[in-house]
Design a protein around this nucleic acid. Structure first.
Length: 569
RNA sequence: UGGGAAGUCGCCAAGCGGUUAAGGCUCUGGUUUUUGGUGCCGGCAUCGGGGGUUCGAAUCCCUCCUUCCCAGCCA
């Protein structure tokens, strides 16, 4: 026990770099009121995915551990791409993970007026100007990575002219692309983001929240830091690709009149092999109809994994185990599966479902007799309830669980071998019936009445235990067996196109799986284990008409499959 | 070849001048087991390379190498 306490202590002492920064800031009185304020600022132009879970956990998590708060801010500065559907989904997904932003729900568009006034002030101070170069010309003037840029010929317009033009832009007197407001910083900066970054562009687009009030929209580098400052964010945490933007961030938060100075810190985004995570690619999968939607259980979106049956707890645990650092890496898909299995093993009720039925007839068992056996719902839970399972003369077992000519180490059913039917009896295979093609259609067995419940007085060892259902009392369900969407751990890396690495078997539908009647009590949201087959959940979307559809969340670990592979089968 | 960042076990990741270089996943032996699941026990690195500083370096300095990001009126 003492040792365990020491370990816990050690774990707490090991802080990630963000926690270290925060603790240092707190200790040195650099945090107003000692209140840490973070924010999660998604752009509502798509669904949130697993990568966002990391950002959500970091921002909400840090706020929680240091007694601060985390704002939800929808970064809606590009009306052409943003939709209400995405806003709704984003909020639902964050709540599903168990985080709460309370009253702190903000929109970048809330600050359009402030931003506009700040822009005018910058012009008045000679720190911003209206450029009338075309987009292509601007690119030319910007220079390259290795060559400095050139000043725009419009850079030295008078303050009055700038003011007039900007006002006309706001009034909609100029077409898109004709003018743009830029910060006057330094066209020769080695950091391209500082070569007079664009502040405002003209867009005659209807905005979700501000409607047609504006036809000029502020850019990220201008909007984001000022939004942070206005909200009193203390630690603005983003991903590594924004490191180059930090000087722009600091420039914006240093504008005269800005009262609060937040700071930006960057961490490495989450990458997981076998998954594609970019919004562009995900949107493409949806548009091309490769998946049924953003919430297709094969999608790495939060709504997808929720529908697949992943628990929010397992995802948060996963993020925790991955850690937070600045090293760009790729986490193994297997770590995520481990976290899901670990959580689901503890919480899911067990059920017997036969996915690929093979009929078993117990010749020495009375016809028409049905007896019931008691099964523990969850053997991992000492307080678990139990339920009854009907047993009879005709059963179904998994086709995989019988072989006429078994390989070495196969200890399931085969002629002459005895196995245990979980909770029920021992049976021994005697003979088989085949169809014209030679496929086994029935296995005739004998049972041992002394083995009732799964043990015998002579305590003889039985190596194999199979799950089963009564052929007459079972319920037919549809099982959807999901697997990875991509076959290559880095989709598109070797083929050049990620769509070429699609897994043709990412969804295998079993239209008529046979389940024990207890499955009728399964509700949407229940976490289930189909014994020996994996974790499943009731589908939330396609099962609404009462149809029994179950999604496979993840398989169980399968060391037999591994052994078969090793033996070259 | 400009600027920014990163390199510790197959994958993450602790470590912050003195440790036998944590831990987790994967893999791999064994064991328990009415799920070939779970659980339990065990195995698995000298820190990108080379110099240097120091009694002592993964930790400090120099240098080289490799990888990632940036030339949207996207975020």
């Amino acid at each position: 026990m003492q040792e365990k306490d020491d370990l816990d202590l050690k774990e707490k002492v090991s802080l990630n770099f963000l926690e270290r920064i925060i603790e240092d800031d707190l200790a040195n009185d650099r945090v107003p009121n000692g209140t840490i304020v973070t924010r999660f600022p998604p752009e509502p132009n798509g669904y949130l995915h697993i990568g966002h879970i990391k950002a959500i956990c970091i921002n909400f998590g840090l706020a929680a551990t240091y007694g601060g708060r985390c704002h939800l801010r929808l970064d809606d500065t590009n009306p052409e791409k943003e939709e209400q559907e995405y806003i709704n989904a984003i909020k639902k997904d964050i709540r599903w993970l168990g985080f709460d932003w309370g009253t702190h729900e903000y929109y970048a568009s809330d600050y359009y007026q402030n931003l506009y006034e700040i822009a005018v002030r910058l012009i008045e101070e000679g720190k911003a100007y209206v450029d009338s170069l075309s987009a292509e010309e601007m690119r030319t003037y910007r220079g390259t990575l290795t060559e400095a840029g050139k000043n725009s010929p419009y850079r030295d317009r008078s303050i009055e002219e700038n003011l007039t033009l900007f006002e006309e832009m706001r009034q909609g007197k100029h077409p898109e692309g004709t003018h743009i407001l830029r910060a006057k910083i330094d066209m020769s900066s080695p950091n391209i983001n500082m070569r007079d970054p664009a502040l405002y562009r003209i867009k005659f687009a209807h905005h979700l929240r501000t409607g047609d009030r504006w036809c000029i929209y502020p850019m990220y580098d201008f909007t984001h830091p000022i939004s942070d400052a206005l909200e009193g964010i203390t630690h603005s945490i983003c991903t590594l690709e924004f490191e180059d933007h930090r000087p722009a961030y600091d420039w914006a938060t240093s504008i005269d009149g800005i009262k609060h100075t937040p700071h930006q810190y960057e961490f490495a985004r989450l990458n997981i092999n076998y998954l594609v995570m970019s919004k562009r690619r995900l949107l493409n999968l949806v548009k091309l109809g490769i998946v049924t939607g953003w919430d297709d259980p094969r999608m790495p979106t939060i709504s997808g994994i929720r529908r697949r049956g992943y628990s929010p707890e397992s995802m948060k645990d996963f993020i925790n185990r991955v850690g937070v650092a600045k090293v760009e890496g790729v986490v193994d898909y297997s770590l995520m599966e481990f976290c899901v299995r670990e959580d689901l093993n503890k919480r899911s009720d067990r059920l017997m479902v036969v996915l690929d039925p093979l009929k078993v007839i117990i010749d020495n068992y009375p016809e028409n007799k049905i007896e019931y056996f008691e099964a523990v719902n969850n053997p991992e839970d000492p307080n678990s309830a139990t339920h009854q399972i009907p047993f009879g003369r005709e059963l179904y077992i998994e086709r995989e669980d019988f072989m006429e000519e078994p390989p070495k180490k196969y200890h399931r059913l085969y002629p002459g071998n005895e196995i245990r039917l979980k909770y029920a009896y021992y049976i021994k295979a005697d003979s088989v019936v085949k169809d014209e093609q030679g496929t086994v259609t029935e296995v005739h067995c004998t049972y041992d009445p002394l083995s009732k419940g799964g043990t015998t007085p002579d305590e003889r060892k039985i190596k194999g235990t199979s799950h089963w259902v009564s052929a007459t009392e079972c319920v037919t369900i549809e099982a959807r067996l999901y697997d990875k969407l991509f076959l290559d751990e880095n989709p598109g890396k070797s083929t050049g196109n990620y769509l070429d690495d699609l897994n043709p078997d990412s969804l295998v539908i079993v239209p008529e799986a046979k389940a024990e009647p207890e499955i009728l009590s399964a509700k949407v949201g229940d976490y289930l284990q189909f014994i020996r087959n994996g974790y499943f959940c009731r589908d939330t979307t396609d099962g609404q008409d009462g149809k029994l559809i179950f999604n496979r969340t993840v398989t169980l670990k399968d060391s037999w499959a591994k052994m078969k592979k090793k033996m070259g089968m």
